[in-house]
Amino acid sequence: MKDLLNDLNKAFENKTRLGIMSALVVNDYVDFNNLKLLLGATDGNLASHLKSLEKRGYIMVKKEFLDKKPKTKYFATKKGKDAFTKHIRAIEKLIK
């Protein structure tokens, strides 16, 4: 039981961060606007959670310009995907 709780990742306790990772692991990338639409988060809220995931090395950011409009794409890193999978496994075991 104690091991299981260690596997639960503090980074994913927040709903928005959990949502960001869920979207990124099943897609090659998701851009900022689509994440916003998907999670129903505000700009500031979403940006701060993205920043914190980026700091942990769970996601990667790529900025592009499309018709002079900035478009920010987010990718899940290998580290992020592994951490997320581990987190889900722990949840599944806890529920059982």
């Binding site: 959990l18 869920s22 692991v25 998701v30 689509n34 998907l38 806890l94 529920i95």
Partner: peptide, 20 residues
């Protein structure tokens, strides 16, 4: 606690589906 994790799993599944 259990309910919270069940909700989490539901959210994860929902977002994965909608985003794809």
């Amino acid at each position: 606690e259990k309910q919270k994790y069940l909700d989490d799993l539901k959210d994860i599944k929902d977002i994965m589906e909608r985003s794809s």
